[in-house]
């Protein structure tokens, strides 16, 4: 119960903090809206207007991933910069438990992107947010966000060892959009990318949201997304514990 309380309060606090940043909010909303607009005009050019809602949802998912990628990838560095990393690591809790709220909060902030693209699509292009399974859509999005948050923990723990985590963040944006089938169906990719896509929680999270939008089996995708995310959390927790010990031993916790 105490752990759940810590996660809840930590997440709420982090969401409040990131909700005050104009840069974060604008980035989470403007980029996906432009991506959604690109997708809308491409679909119009392809004479596939019936797929507009998929474009809006897909662009929203891309925005969620970007927010998680850059938010989680820079989570540790940001705590260092603010001088709060030592306090987090000194807390008598597992270090993964203290960082997880930050990464889940990035996923929650990323849902601004989904709201923005759906709202933009409806207001500007008349794309009505009609989902094949509306209630399952409301289940699929939080599952996707939770999954991405746990994946974010793995990223955060891995990136802390790298001096150039930003470079990896910049590099990973498009490949995950592509491999996870957020806007481009995985079926058009070369067959060898299939196994890579299957081990990503983003693939199953995106599939759950798309199935809820256009019709299909949502629960198996949610189950896979959460299952892989738990594995990401376990790996991230192990990695975070190792990194924390190493940084304390070498007295480099506060050093970038």
């Amino acid at each position: 119960m105490r752990t759940l309380r810590m996660l809840w309060i930590g997440t709420i606090m982090q969401v409040k903090m990131s909700s005050r940043g104009t840069f974060e909010i604008a980035t989470a909303m403007i980029m996906p809206i432009v991506q959604a607009t690109v997708a809308v005009y491409l679909l119009r050019a392809a004479d596939s207007p019936h797929r507009m809602i998929e474009a809006a949802v897909g662009a929203g998912l891309m925005g969620v991933w970007s927010t998680v990628l850059f938010g989680s990838g820079g989570a540790i560095q940001r705590q260092r910069f603010m001088g709060t990393l030592e306090m987090l690591m000194l807390a008598p809790r597992n270090p993964a438990g203290t960082i997880l709220p930050i990464t889940i909060a990035t996923g929650l902030t990323g849902t601004y992107a989904m709201i923005a693209t759906l709202g933009w699509g409806w207001l500007v292009y008349g794309i009505r947010p009609e989902f094949a399974h509306p209630w399952l859509f409301l289940a699929a999005v939080p599952a996707c966000v939770l999954g991405l948050g746990m994946f974010g923990l793995l990223l955060a723990s891995t990136f802390v060892l790298m001096r150039n985590a930003n470079a990896l963040c910049n590099t990973l944006e498009y490949p995950i959009w592509l491999l996870s089938g957020m806007l481009v169906p995985i079926t058009v990719l070369p067959a060898w990318t299939g196994p890579l896509a299957d081990i990503l929680p983003t693939t199953w999270g995106a599939r759950a949201v798309h199935e809820a939008t256009s019709g299909g089996a949502v629960w198996p995708a949610i189950a896979w997304c959460l299952g892989i995310s738990v594995a990401c959390f376990a790996l991230g927790a192990l990695s975070m514990t190792y990194v924390e010990r190493r940084a304390r031993t070498a007295a480099t916790l506060a050093l970038a």
């Binding site: 491409l42 050019a45 498009y174 490949p175 959009w177 592509l178 806007l183 481009v184 058009v188």
Partner: peptide, 13 residues
């Protein structure tokens, strides 16, 4: 990767 993303999107559409 940006090129590949749009090329595959274009192929699909």
């Amino acid at each position: 990767f940006q090129l590949l993303f749009f090329a595959y999107l274009g192929r699909q559409l």
